[in-house]
Amino acid sequence: MAELDHLLLDPTRLAIVSLLAAAEWAEFGFVRDSVKLSDSALSKQVTTLSKKDYVEVRKGYVGKRPRTWLNLTDAGRDNLAGHISALQTIAEKARSDGAQQPRDQTVP
Rank of each mutant, 00 (worst) to 15 (best):
N71C: 12
L49E: 01
F28I: 04
R67H: 07
Q88C: 10
S18G: 09
P102E: 15
Y54D: 02
G29S: 11
A81K: 07
D39S: 15
D33M: 03
S34N: 05
V55D: 02
V57R: 07
S18W: 02
E3I: 02
A86D: 04
V31M: 02
Q88V: 04
E3Y: 06
D5E: 15
L19M: 07
S34G: 04
E56F: 01
K64D: 15
R77D: 08
M1C: 05
W25C: 05
Y61K: 13
P11R: 01
D53K: 12
R58C: 06
K36G: 06
D10H: 08
L37V: 00
D97H: 08
K44V: 03
A41L: 06
L87C: 09
K93F: 13
A22I: 14
T73Q: 03
R65S: 10
D33A: 10
Q45T: 00
A91Q: 09
S85H: 07
R65F: 12
K52N: 07
R65V: 15
V31K: 08
Q105M: 11
T73I: 06
K59D: 06
L49C: 03
A23E: 08
G98V: 03
D5Q: 11
R32H: 03
D78V: 12
E3K: 15
M1V: 06
L70K: 02
I16D: 01
A86L: 01
L49G: 04
A41H: 10
G98E: 09
D78R: 15
L37D: 05
I84R: 08
V57S: 03
T89Q: 15
L9D: 01
R32D: 10
A91T: 10
V46K: 01
E56M: 04
